[in-house]
Amino acid sequence: MINQNTLTSNENGNRPISRKMAEVYAQVFNVSAGWLLYGEEANSSRMAIPLVSWVSAGALTETNTVLHDEDAIRFEYTSELDPAGDWIALRVQGRSMDKISPEDSIIFVNRKEKMLVPNGCYIISDGDGGATYKRYRPPNKFEPVSTKPEEFDTLTFDQGQEPEIIGRVRKTVLSL
């Protein structure tokens, strides 16, 4: 919700727009925060991706919102993603993928990409509400990509016991 006094003060130039408020205004008015703050031209390749939850970069962990983008916490804006994809963003918790996606980074997952590709990184579910982030190794392993791989298990599935692929991770962003 936007406070009317804050909006008026920002519009009149009596109060500078904070980065946080620029993100709020950007969502409400369908413009970029960069345009509001710096006058940057709109970039048609930028996409608003719903940040829906977090995902464990460790063991399979209970999470019930990993599939539901209508429950978005907020939107992450990024470019260089296939506009034909079905995208969600997730915050990484844990260190089992820290060589690729350090803890607290945001990953962008294409839910349309479910075909397993060697060395591709995926969000997988066990079908019972557990989900994790791992790299696929044929024929049936999902492994950590960590600075300390000995601390984390590789998930191996028996033939016929395949995990549900939620989607392929295509981008990682870490804000410092």
Results as ranks from 00 to 15, higher is better:
E76H: 11
L37P: 00
N140F: 14
A84D: 10
P118W: 03
D82R: 08
V55D: 07
Q93C: 10
L36A: 06
F142G: 04
V145Y: 10
P118T: 02
L116Q: 04
P83F: 08
E113P: 00
I124Y: 07
S101N: 07
I123R: 06
S101K: 03
G85K: 00
T78V: 12
E103A: 07
A59N: 14
D104T: 00
I107T: 03
G58W: 09
A72F: 15
T132C: 13
T132V: 06
V109C: 06
R46Q: 14
L90Y: 14
R111L: 02
T61Q: 14
E76D: 12
V66T: 14
S125R: 08
K134R: 14
L90C: 10
T78W: 00
A48K: 13
Y77E: 09
G130F: 11
V109L: 03
S101W: 00
D69V: 10
Y133D: 05
A89W: 06
K114F: 05
R95W: 01
V117A: 04
A42I: 06
G58Q: 11
G94N: 02
M97W: 04
S101R: 00
A131P: 05
N119H: 12
N43W: 00
V52D: 00
I88Q: 07
F75W: 02
M97C: 01
S45H: 02
I49N: 04
A48M: 13
I123Y: 12
I100A: 14
D128R: 08
S45L: 04
D126P: 11
R135I: 08
D128A: 15
A72V: 12
C121D: 14
W87N: 08
H68F: 03
K114Q: 15
D69E: 08
F142E: 05
I73N: 05
G94A: 02
V66A: 14
D98C: 06
V52G: 12
D98K: 06
S146R: 12
A57E: 09
I124G: 07
K134I: 03
A57C: 10
R46Y: 10
S101G: 02
F142C: 01
P144F: 11
R111V: 00
V92P: 04
S44K: 14
K99G: 02
N140E: 13
A59L: 11
H68D: 15
P144R: 13
K112G: 04
R91S: 13
V109T: 04
R91L: 08
Y133T: 02
F142L: 02
G129F: 06
G129S: 09
S56Y: 05
Y38D: 08
K148L: 03
P138N: 00
Y136L: 06
K148Y: 11
E143D: 09
L51C: 06
I88L: 08
A84C: 06
T61P: 05
D98V: 00
V66I: 15
K148D: 12
W54D: 09
W87L: 04
I124A: 02
I73Y: 10
Y133N: 07
G127Q: 12
R46S: 12
T65A: 08
